[in-house]
Each structure stands twice: as C-alpha cells, then as structure tokens.
C-alpha cells in the first residue's frame, strides 16, 4: 500500500485531471457528435421491417414510412430477418 494519504490524494488528483483531459480530447475529436445516431448500433436493418402484432395502425404506418415495407420470412422454418 502507498505510504501516506498525501501520495494517494495527489495520485487521485492527477488521475482525475487525466480523465477530464481525455474526456475533453474526445469531445473535441467529435466522438460525442450526433450521439443519438449511435442508438441505431443495436439495431439491424431488418429489425424495422418485421410486423409487430402490438403496433397500432399509426405506429405501423410510421415505421413503414421511415424504414420501408414489412417483410415476412420467405419460407416458414427459415428464420430470415428474425435472427
């Protein structure tokens, strides 16, 4: 263990400042730009083209308008976009 709390305090302060610097660097590099687009990372394109039985007519129309028409598995038993 480190010999005294003063050392530790200094180490934490330096570490904290480094973290802040890293955050600012990332900010300036634009890593946080258009951040809500990154929410799409979890989605696969065909996730939007599957009919969902709980959708209201309006919700379905909205989805189709944004992402194109609903697809169905071509053959039963083949998973298609349902994977």
């Amino acid at each position: 263990m480190l010999p005294s709390s003063l050392t530790v305090t200094l180490a934490i302060t330096i570490l904290g400042l480094l973290t802040v610097a890293a955050f600012l660097w990332a900010w300036r590099k634009g890593q946080f730009d258009r951040i809500n687009d990154q929410a799409m990372l979890a989605m696969d394109d065909d996730d939007f083209n599957v009919a969902r039985p709980w959708e209201t007519v309006a919700q379905r129309a909205e989805r189709v308008a944004a992402h194109g028409p609903t697809q169905l598995p071509a053959v039963p038993g083949i998973w298609g976009g349902a994977r």
Partner: peptide
C-alpha cells in the same frame, strides 16, 4: 402495407 421477401442478406 405490402410485404416483400427477405432481402437484406448482408445484414443477416
């Protein structure tokens, strides 16, 4: 709405 068959094979 119209339905189509599976197209997005790359994504799959």
């Amino acid at each position: 709405e119209l339905t189509t068959s599976i197209t997005d094979l790359e994504n799959l």
